[in-house]
Design a protein around this nucleic acid. Structure first.
Lengths: 224, 224
DNA sequence: CGCCGGTTTGAGTCACTTCAACGACAGTGG
DNA sequence: CCACTGTCGTTGAAGTGACTCAAACCGGCG
């Protein structure tokens, strides 16, 4: 069951009783976000084509965050009961789902570290590095950089800064000749410099354990 | 296999190749934390008796964060292969593990919101509320409050603030007659007031889906 | 008693926010 | 074809919440 979502459409809303389905992104980008009681928004993760969208809710009764299309997005939907049965009966799928869910958690932890402990330069640089690594893994980055489909406001909501301050920080990074941004296209001039500012290490992405298609992972259901 | 850990002992270190075991907390508290390249520490989660300690690493090759005993702690250890087999063969256990892992993720997301979007008062108040809710669920809170086994420095590392500022903020909360702290014991005088400051809602803890013992959950492997 | 980890307090500074306005650009409709 | 509108990016000026540095205090313990 394929579906198209317009930018900014809500796919799941916090508090909602979950009964419908999980989705797999075919094209476009999605984010997951939460709001405080006073309406401040925190983007808690970003998803690109190939990602499972709400695996995080597979066994939960109520949605604890919002899921929203960031750009125009196509997704394939899988019924919850069907996916659960698949997970229970097929060890390969189960393992792949576990890895996907655990990597997702690992990324949240890194984001928490990012937002809690780094300054503005570090946070933004880290976001750019992570996105570069994930886009590269997904085959969506070129030598000249990649398309970062976010406004400065959204970047701010992802790293816990104001849009204004994101603007000034990016301006500073450009001034130091580390990056250039031409519309939505981002280019690194000094990737090592950016990595140093970010304190970036890709360990937490567990890239060695990711394959695009869960079906073609080698049999790793045999245990340790 | 039962083991005792002294306060501050590392149980798992970031970057480590994981081969040994998972642990279940019998008594005491543990934290999980990460460090930036410049040595700043972020506590990414806290665990109390009954929690599974490193389920987050069950299917991953390398540890992406540190796990450390916060107090004197006793844990029961389960071999990784044994637990994986159990998960694959027993749908009830599998479901319970999924729920545990997903709730853990949900908590990270809430922490990200907390650190990214709330001010010092809100962050600390939120931490106190969450801990109250979890301690109550674990039967470890009394009417008079609960034991919060953290120094102000650790609270700071959990919410992304300096120990000094945590001190001043707690002082302010005390001055407003919202809480009192006597050594490690914390008492709420105005729980509703604290909840309001925190913007706390326990939805994200998914308390309706938690049981202390994975074995006695009702059969919910039947799908949606 | 003297040390030590943790808490408390003060003074000065700075990174980030807030508010506000303006410019660039794309889409829309007359 | 151009005026109208809305979104996004950019910039300035002023305010403030949290940090830094540093010192003193406190209770527990060997």
């Amino acid at each position: 069951m394929q579906r198209t979502y317009q930018p900014n459409t809500y796919i799941i809303r916090e508090g909602e009783l979950l009964q419908r389905h999980c989705a797999f992104i075919i094209s476009g980008f999605a984010i997951r976000q939460k709001l405080t009681n006073v309406g401040a928004r925190q983007i808690v993760s970003m998803h690109l084509p190939g990602d499972l969208l709400d695996l995080q809710h597979l066994y939960l009764n109520y949605a604890d965050h919002n899921v929203q299309a960031l750009t125009l997005m196509e997704a394939a939907e899988i019924g919850r009961p069907a996916l659960r049965r698949l997970v229970l009966r097929n060890p390969r799928v189960a393992t792949a789902m576990w890895i996907d869910a655990l990597v997702d958690s690992s990324i949240s932890r890194e984001w928490l570290l990012n937002v809690g402990q780094r300054d503005a330069r570090g946070r933004i640089a880290h976001l750019l590095c992570e996105f570069a690594a994930r886009m590269t893994a997904a085959g969506m980055a070129s030598d000249s950089g990649y398309e970062l489909p976010m406004t400065q406001e959204q970047i701010g909501d992802a790293v816990g800064l104001t849009a204004v301050h994101v603007n000034r920080t990016i301006k500073a990074l450009k001034a130091e000749n580390l990056i250039t941004r031409d519309k939505r296209h981002l280019h690194f001039h000094d990737i090592e410099g950016i990595r140093a500012i970010a304190g970036f290490s890709s360990l937490y992405l567990h890239l060695d354990q990711i394959t695009t298609d869960p079906e073609d992972r080698p049999g790793d259901e045999r245990g340790a």
